[in-house]
Structures are given as C-alpha cells and as structure tokens.
Simulated scan of single mutants.
Amino acid sequence: MATPLRAQNDAMTPIPTPAQPGAIELGTGPLPGARNPETWHAQYGSRFARNVTIATLTPYLPDPAKASGTAVIVAPGGGFLTLSMENEGSDVAKALAARGIAAFVLKYRLNQTPATMAEFDKSMRAMFAGVARASQSPAQSQPTPQERMAGLAPQIADSRAAFALIRQRAGEWHIDPNRVGMVGFSAGAMLTLATELSGQDARPAFLGLVYGPLAPVTVPADAPPMFVAIAADDPFFANNGFGLVESWRAARRPVEFHLYEQGGHGFGMYPKTTTSTGWFDAFVRWMDMHGWVKAAR
C-alpha cells in the first residue's frame, strides 16, 4: 500500500519492463501457481512492478572510501500486489549509499493480480477504498501480526534469502555481517517486522518501519532497535493506536517513534511540503546515534 494521497487520481501507464542491471536472483523459486508474468507501470512519476514471480536483490554499494560496513535491505510497499520500486526502493537505496551505507533493494514475490491494466486498476481502487474504510474505525478488528505473517510465507522466504546472500558475500561487499538491518514501507514494513518476528536466522540488526501497521506484538527478548515513522493523517494505519511502539517500550527494547502531523500514506522519498519528508534524515541520524553510519573501529 504505497499510494501517495496527493495524487490518488494519477493514471497507471504500462511501460516496458526496464533493464535491471545488477539484480541477483535469490533462488527462492518461481511463485507457486503464478500464471501472469511480471509487468511494470508508471504512476506518480515513479515506476512500479507487479506480478513479481522471481525474487531479486539489487545492490547499491557506497564509495569504498566512505563505506561504513553497515548494510540495509530496502523493502518497497504496494499491498503485496505491486512494488514502488523507485520511491520506496532505488531512491532510498541511492540515498543510503551516498551516506556510506550499503543498500539492497528487495524485489520480493507478489500476490497475482489481473493481467490487464484496466482490471488491475479497478481491483486496486476497490482494495484501497475497502482498507481505508475499515481503518477509519478504531473498533474495526485488524489482523494481528501473527495473522499477517501466516500469509507471507513466500515473502519471508525471500527476505531470509536476501539476508543469507548479503552475509555470504559480506567480504566481497565490505559489509559487517552483524550490521545488516532492514527498512520497509507499508507492506514492506509488514515484511520487515515479520522477518524479525519469524525468529529465524535472518534476523535484522535493526528495523525501520515507515507507515506500516502499528498493532501490538509479542516482542522477542533480544529484539533489535526499531525506528518507526508514520503520518497522523495516514488513512490506513494511524487510527488504531500505537501498540507496536508500546510493545517495544514495555519490553525495554530501543525504539524511536516519529508521528508527523501530515504526510498521508506512501510519501517515501517524494518531495513534499510536509515535515514527513524529513523521515529519511531522521532515520540516518538515528542510525548514526547507534554507530551504524561510521565504520566500526
């Protein structure tokens, strides 16, 4: 779910699948039962992928002279139906690499959508309208993180494979395997949290959750530091409290929370007049506070 509210009426325009130099297949196999092939479209001045059936990881490596040894897996959003590959993917990765942080865009497998753009557009509008209506009511029952995780087996497998690949090639990419974190947006934030809560070998060194669900969770005793950012006018996830942040605090685990007055949903790296645009600088300052922006001594 990565639609910026400032441009809800922008049309989705089909585009040729772009060259993706440097993309590495993760080896998690084709999506079971998939019939429709991967396609791309342009919207809001950015590019989106859908019907992703083969997961890939694309590195964006910093200048070796300024590399910190820290890496971040970037998980774009899109409701597990599409991926905001630039605004929540490569644009974020390039900005991190410019700060000396190795970044890797995870193009994870998606649920299948209609083959034609007209049918897909209709289905997306209906989905967003339904989710927005449900999220407006605090009394509305929201899926628990465990319920969300149950339907994310392919995506969690892709995330685990991404961590394994980065740690396997850490020497080649000048990365400390103990300093690999993950930042996700909307559905990508769900996947980021699910990766941590799955309790397997892929666990991130730190988490960044940008306009994702905020339902309370059972926090692992050794949960990593977590950064959370959301706009108060987010129509999907800002109306049911901040249980996730409270869970982290109750477990006495490090958490930083930014609640922006305005910004809507899906602001990502789009330049806006709202203070939500400052989330990236705040995230990097938070990383610096923990010592991840500078090379380890």
Rank of each mutant, 00 (worst) to 15 (best):
L209F: 06
G79E: 06
P154W: 12
V217M: 10
H265M: 10
L96A: 03
L165T: 05
F104P: 04
T275K: 10
N240H: 15
G188A: 06
Y60H: 13
L106A: 01
G151E: 09
V219Y: 08
E256P: 02
T277S: 14
P4S: 02
T275A: 14
F163R: 09
T274G: 01
N36D: 11
K272G: 09
A95Y: 02
V131G: 07
F185P: 00
H290D: 02
G33E: 08
S46D: 14
A95C: 02
A250C: 01
A129I: 06
R99V: 01
S141A: 15
D201N: 12
T195D: 08
T275F: 08
W279K: 14
G243C: 07
F283T: 07
T28F: 15
L31T: 15
V183M: 10
P16E: 10
Q112M: 12
T82R: 11
Q168K: 15
A97G: 04
G266Y: 05
M226F: 08
Q262H: 13
R253Y: 14
Y108L: 00
P204K: 06
S46T: 12
G241W: 13
P30T: 13
R35W: 00
N178C: 11
A118S: 14
G171T: 10
A129T: 10
A98P: 00
L197W: 05
R133E: 14
T275Q: 10
I54E: 15
Q8A: 14
A19F: 04
A229E: 07
S123P: 00
W173I: 06
R133K: 15
M287K: 07
A282N: 11
A71M: 05
V105P: 00
A42I: 00
F206H: 13
A153Q: 14
E147G: 09
R297S: 10
V210F: 14
S84V: 04
K272Q: 11
Q20C: 08
R125P: 02
A139P: 04
A231R: 09
Y44D: 11
A7Y: 06
T58Y: 04
I15K: 11
D233M: 02
A221D: 09
N9T: 15
